[in-house]
């Protein structure tokens, strides 16, 4: 081991520790409010990948930074050592990058997908049909209740602690159904019904946190940026009352 190698090794340890401290010990990498079980899966995956990325990034930055400071010369004098490669180092590099890649594919990749799928399987407590049109949503609840989001005070009301299944489609161009608080998103495609589930946890309201909104996330032309509507997650009793009241008005 020459001195440069030892120095970089310690630099790497320090940078890794520093990076992990920022992630674990500060709120720089905090996440927006979560309103669905599925959102926890997403945030856990995000957190895990960030923590895993730190030593990798720290390694490249250590070598880059150390070389930048230690190996600089003021002009073209002599050549560097004619090292074409170190076979064992290259093989080691290939092994750890491959290993890490396969690991990330399995977790949080495949495990996360299966977990989200598992949460979405089974009988939903509520099915909401959501239809995108330029530039509003038509939200169809059971009992013939319909909310069109261009109406005054329109909002998407959902019951808490419930498995809600959204059946999404479009009447014209591509849109996308996205509730940032749920971390769930799926495109609204004309001629196709796509589905997505959210298992709501905790009461939430757009007025308190803008992550509680239904937002179009696929460019749909002129008023794309205004194609959003507040989401309000309420207690089951309150939701039933709201639905019953709406059903009366509808009838």
């Amino acid at each position: 081991m020459n001195r440069d190698t030892v120095n970089v090794f310690f630099l790497w340890l320090v940078l890794t520790a520093l990076g992990e401290f920022v992630i674990l010990g500060t709120d720089l990498f905090s996440y927006p409010i979560v309103g669905a079980e599925e959102g926890h899966v997403v945030d856990d995956a995000f957190f895990f990948l960030t923590a895993l990325a730190v030593p990798v990034a720290a390694f490249v930055l250590s070598m880059l930074g150390y070389a930048f400071i230690r190996f600089r010369v003021s002009g073209p004098d002599e050549d560097g050592p004619p090292v074409k490669m170190h076979r064992s180092w290259a093989i080691f590099w290939l092994l750890w990058t491959t290993g890490l890649t396969l690991f990330v594919i399995v977790h949080p990749g495949i495990t996360g997908i299966l977990e989200i799928r598992h949460l979405g399987s089974g009988e939903p407590d509520l099915v909401v049909e959501t239809e995108g049109s330029r530039w509003y949503w038509t939200i169809n609840y059971p009992d013939g209740v319909t909310v069109k989001t261009f109406e005054e005070d329109a909002e998407m009301v959902l019951p808490v602690d419930s498995h809600v299944k959204f059946e999404v489609t479009s009447t014209d161009v591509l849109h996308a159904f996205w509730v940032p608080a749920f971390r769930m998103k799926v495109d609204a495609v004309p001629g196709l019904v796509t589905t997505i589930s959210a298992t709501t946890i905790g009461l939430g309201n757009y007025r308190d946190d803008p992550q509680y909104r239904l937002q179009c996330a696929e460019l749909c032309g002129l008023l794309h940026n205004g194609m959003d509507v507040p989401v309000r997650v309420v207690s089951v009793a309150e939701f039933d009352a709201w639905l019953a009241e709406k059903a009366v008005t509808a009838a």
């Binding site: 440069d4 070389a67 930048f68 190996f71």
Partner: peptide, 22 residues
């Protein structure tokens, strides 16, 4: 990301103990 990693291997391997004219 595996072949892309090899590009990083090469870039870092070149500058390591080279004579960097900045």
């Amino acid at each position: 990301s595996i072949p892309t990693g090899v590009i990083f291997l090469s870039a870092l391997g070149i500058i390591w103990r080279g004579r960097l004219w900045l």
